[in-house]
Design a protein around this nucleic acid. Structure first.
Lengths: 131, 131
DNA sequence: CGGCATCCCGAGGGATACTG
DNA sequence: CAGTATCCCTCGGGATGCCG
């Protein structure tokens, strides 16, 4: 709801880019959004399982920030073993093209393996034979 | 060139998103890329002027990281007043859809004003009267 | 003009332990 | 199950000053 949630960005042509990125800021927001887009609704530990190297502290924090930003909706069920669902709000869902673009570029240009990243150059010059 | 420039990402479905975001990490990479996409080639101070609140230290750092990542090419002209040009590499240019998506979402959902950001909700429920 | 070098601070974020 | 609460430390990043 139009909170002045500002992080001092430039009021300049590139600003929309800056602004959008500021919502994806933090180490895990992108992946969280990705999984919520994929699976619709997820419980806390379901998310954890999908993002193995996140700690519960960080997952909680990032989810709260996403919630505050109005991108994620948190639903608490008052049941014996606590149950909390996370899903995207309409605003969160509107990020789908952004996440899709990020994902596509990653799939095309980055090899993710054993927690390492390797760049994949576009113009494969294949100097003589690929390494 | 396939340097193991890793920042420990998850080897999981969301990984491409993570990976791509890791290249946009840092406070200014997104905007820098945006402006280089817009203008093609820019000198150091031309970039500074387009990103008023960046310090030269930070601009330098982020440019170096983009260069190391293979997204930006730096050309030094050995002339009396030093001249350095920055432009995108083919790999950098390939990020165009990503930046475009970021920019579009920002333009549609964020109002950037006086260094503040205001969210623009999609479903204007106007409960009774907007606050 | 286009940088480095240095100092310094606070936020980001990991590890661990406890709780309703 | 889904968190809080602490501790602690790295490092992102601003400010300032000097240089070829």
């Amino acid at each position: 709801m139009s909170k002045p949630r500002a992080k001092l960005t430039d009021n300049f042509p590139g600003c929309p880019v800056e602004s959008t990125l500021s919502f994806l800021d933090g180490k895990w927001k992108g992946v969280i959004l990705y999984h919520l887009l994929e699976d619709g609704t997820l419980r806390f530990n379901e998310l954890r399982r999908r993002i193995p190297s996140v700690t519960q502290r960080m997952l909680t924090k990032q989810l709260r920030e996403l919630e505050e930003a109005g991108l994620v909706e948190r639903t608490v069920f008052p049941v014996v073993p606590p149950r909390v669902d996370y899903k995207l709000t309409p605003l969160g869902l509107s990020l789908e093209p952004v996440i899709a673009a990020l994902r596509l570029w990653g799939k095309e240009h980055v090899i993710c393996e054993n927690g390492r990243k390797y760049m994949v150059m576009p113009e494969a010059k294949t100097p003589s034979k690929a390494a």
